[in-house]
């Protein structure tokens, strides 16, 4: 077991402040605090080599969980263990085995070429020369940034910079990699490249990767297993494809008619999502989809009929909005 989290909670103490100047004065004298439950009693385990995606809306507790795992935050309650270390003790041996990449924070030296930051990390992590050279060669080839390693970081494009950030974070070949919004702000092509890289990296080095993202694409393509989190609670933990079975209670029937069909007749069969004179999408319960389809074929002038699963984005949106 690489990561084991049991009953982890993390509450932030936040003081209330009424709006305006008077509110500010009041908060000087008397402060009322309340607990914001960023993460509320979650448990999960992650095996070596797994690539797990954390998804959830803003403020769901994804980043907080990652910070607890990497040792930046100490938990309010519960137990966290990564590679048999207690993260928040920040033992140097532990830190040498992990990496945290925050899409919105950089550790590259802004005024110097990225190469310098790599060499500094080589010293910080005590990496022998030959291993450093080999890893750098591999990473810069995989990410295709060989030609910009000697360019001042501030002159790089966002995509190039993000790639260099990744190299700095991976130069010590961490066993566990935490990625917080690694593709934020990147264009579609660059996002795809980063995803391909992470996939490849995970395969090649057997490292455990945990990532958070707003983009479903990231998760869909990379992670077999997802943990859906909202309001600090885990809503779902398991294979991505099983979400559909578990949460999608409905299927979509989309039908092309050869002649005009009245809306009122279709409404008896299920909810109508889309309708035009010769086309309709009807939402029906999963279990009834076959029956309804048979009925349609029997009693309507059907030209074409498709039974479709709702897409994952829609399901997840439903899961979030229901709560």
């Amino acid at each position: 077991m690489v990561i084991s989290v049991s009953h982890l909670s993390k509450f932030y103490k936040i003081h209330k402040k009424e709006a305006g100047f008077l509110g500010s004065m009041k908060s000087l004298v008397k402060r009322e605090y309340f607990d914001a439950k960023a993460v509320d009693d979650i448990s999960f385990e992650i095996e070596e080599g797994e690539l797990v995606g954390f998804i959830g809306p803003n403020g769901a507790g994804k980043t907080t969980t990652l910070k607890c795992l990497s040792g930046l935050l100490y938990p309010t309650n519960g137990h966290v263990s990564v590679l048999d270390y207690i993260p928040y003790e920040r033992n140097y041996d532990y830190l040498k085995k992990i990496a945290l990449v925050m899409g919105q924070k950089n550790q590259l030296w802004w005024d110097l070429p990225a190469q310098e930051s790599f060499i500094l990390n080589k010293e910080i992590y005590d990496i022998p020369d030959n291993i450093f050279n080999k890893t750098l060669e591999e990473l810069s080839t995989l990410l295709d940034v060989k030609d910009v390693l000697n360019v001042q970081v501030r002159k790089l494009s966002l995509g190039q910079r993000m790639k260099c950030e990744l190299i700095t974070a991976l130069i010590h070949s961490p066993k566990v990699l935490f990625l917080d919004e690694p593709t934020i702000g990147l264009d579609v092509v660059m996002q795809k490249k980063l995803r391909d890289f992470l996939k490849e990296y995970n395969k090649k080095y057997k490292s455990t990767i945990i990532l958070t993202s707003h983009y479903m694409e990231d998760v869909k393509e990379l992670c077999e297993r997802v943990i859906i989190i909202d309001h600090g609670k885990i809503l779902y933990d398991g294979k991505l494809e099983n979400i559909v079975k578990e949460y999608a209670k409905n299927k979509f029937l989309s039908i092309d008619f050869s002649t005009t069909v009245e809306r009122s007749k279709l409404e008896k069969l299920g909810n109508i999502k889309e309708y035009s004179e010769t086309f309709a999408v009807i939402v029906v319960e999963r279990t009834k989809s076959n029956k309804v389809a048979a009925k349609l074929l029997e009693s309507f002038p059907v030209k074409d009929l498709n039974i479709e699963e709702p897409n994952i984005e829609d399901i997840i949106r439903d899961v979030f909005t229901k709560k």
Binding site: L72, I98, L100
Partner: peptide
């Protein structure tokens, strides 16, 4: 919050 970048490195 840049301190975080140092806390996670040895």
């Amino acid at each position: 919050g840049n301190l975080s970048n140092f806390l996670i490195r040895p």
